[in-house]
Design a protein around this nucleic acid. Structure first.
Lengths: 253, 253
DNA sequence: TTTTATATGATTGACTTTAATCATATAACT
DNA sequence: AGTTATATGATTAAAGTCAATCATATAAAA
């Protein structure tokens, strides 16, 4: 029998939350948990799936990171190949004993994932990127330090005064930074506070490596980060020829 | 035909890693990815499942947090009811506008999960517990600050000098601490550095609430944390009578 | 109140997944 | 080299899951 609309939506919200807690639920558990038939459970999951809050699997459903790390997860699959290429080059720069900083962003997560598969040890990694930290933690020989700060969930990153202060306590051999745009002038990023933070970190390091995939070439973001002469290394999947024709001259790796 | 043992194990490790990246894989994808039959894929997943590295689902498998937050996840289901009870009492102590610290440990995670479902706002939460931070982040009206420090993955927690320094920058209205044991003398915990840290945090707060489930009653851990008189509030599922007969006299909530 | 729209559970048949068994090739052991 | 142990894929029957359809009760709209 039909049930009031608001009750349905409330149930679906509770379902999304339950799913978030369990990370995965078989269809049957959904039925018993809410005392509904399989058909309704299926319809509920289908609805949540349409809203991209969960992912259906054969026999159940998965909580979506999308629900939590929304924009982050979306971009994650973008130009994946490019990110992998950049990550491989970045890792070639690592030497045992180094202390490195890994920036926010999906490119850095790709770097961390690659590093996880082909570790360089010993290494001290400092980051404000929660997913990077979780990816690298527990690898033997790699010490992970997370900077403190205000948690911005959408980007899964820590920022704010406290983060800047934490960063100031370090000396890095090499910092890897990501950004949103690059052109003949230099590097740009979308948020002022992110740029602030990146400058702080770069100031504490011997060398600074910028990681940008070719898709960032045309794009110009709001906040100016660096002119090219402050960039020690550029890691990109764009060819030298393409870079030249955009008027970019940087030390490629 | 039989294949060398080391190849099997290598494949299973790669599978675990692949799964970790994808969070979920349908059985069929495992087959195509490694070019193996369903039977073998099933056996591989079963093996990883025995090692608690993945969780089998109907039609596929899930990456386990167990693989990463091993001991943490195991304890998570222990005395769940007790933790929920404690969490409910803890949340009753919260008032809009407060700045609170949430400690490491599964009890605090339960608290965070409960808070997520029945939010008190506005609230500033400071923690060194990654799972707590992720649980609470993005809730409207709740600001989450993560302390910096060395990431101890097994406990999913941040510690070390840096963490202590970060904590020293705060003033709390109320801190919630967990511990491993309690007796007539006071509260004990298992690790010296954790205790150190807890003392630092408690020193920065107006009030200190200790959260311990009844299972901790007999247990006595290595490092001494507090005598009872330094505990402002005791949140526990143990009855007053039981506490008395263990010689514990604290302000119950 | 009457009418319309819809949320639900039951039923069905098609399709998938599973666990168990087996033959075989080959790794590991003696 | 000869023997044993086992990792593999194929086959099967049983169980589970799914999408579609339908009758019904009731919420929402008129």
């Amino acid at each position: 029998m039909k049930v009031a609309r608001h009750l349905v939506e409330a149930r679906r919200e509770r379902l999304a939350d339950l799913l978030r807690q369990h990370r995965y639920l078989p269809l049957h558990d959904v039925c018993t948990q809410f005392g509904i038939s399989e058909a309704t459970a299926r319809r509920d999951l289908a609805a949540l799936s349409d809203e991209k809050k969960v992912t259906r699997t054969y026999g159940g459903a998965l909580a979506d990171y999308n629900a939590t790390f929304a924009s982050f997860a979306e971009r994650r699959n973008l130009s994946r190949e490019a990110k992998r290429k950049i990550a491989a080059r970045a890792i070639a720069l690592l030497r045992p004993g180094m202390t490195c900083y890994l920036d926010a962003g999906t490119t850095m997560l790709a770097l961390a994932e690659t590093l996880r598969q082909r570790p360089v040890t010993p290494l001290t990694i400092v980051t404000n990127n929660l997913l990077v930290a979780e990816t690298l933690a527990e690898l033997p020989g790699i010490e992970v330090h997370l900077l403190g700060g205000l948690l911005l969930r959408r980007q899964s990153v820590l920022l704010g005064e406290q983060a800047k202060k934490s960063a100031a306590a370090w000396r890095f051999d090499l910092v890897f930074l990501g950004a949103e745009g690059m052109d003949a002038e230099g590097i740009t990023n979308s948020q002022e506070d992110v740029v602030e933070f990146q400058k702080t970190v770069a100031g504490r390091s011997k060398r600074t490596a910028l990681c940008l995939d070719a898709a960032k070439l045309v794009h110009q973001a709001a906040a100016f980060l660096f002119p090219w002469k402050q960039v020690d290394l550029l890691l990109t999947d764009a060819s030298p020829a393409v870079l030249r024709c955009h008027g970019i001259a940087a030390k490629l790796v």
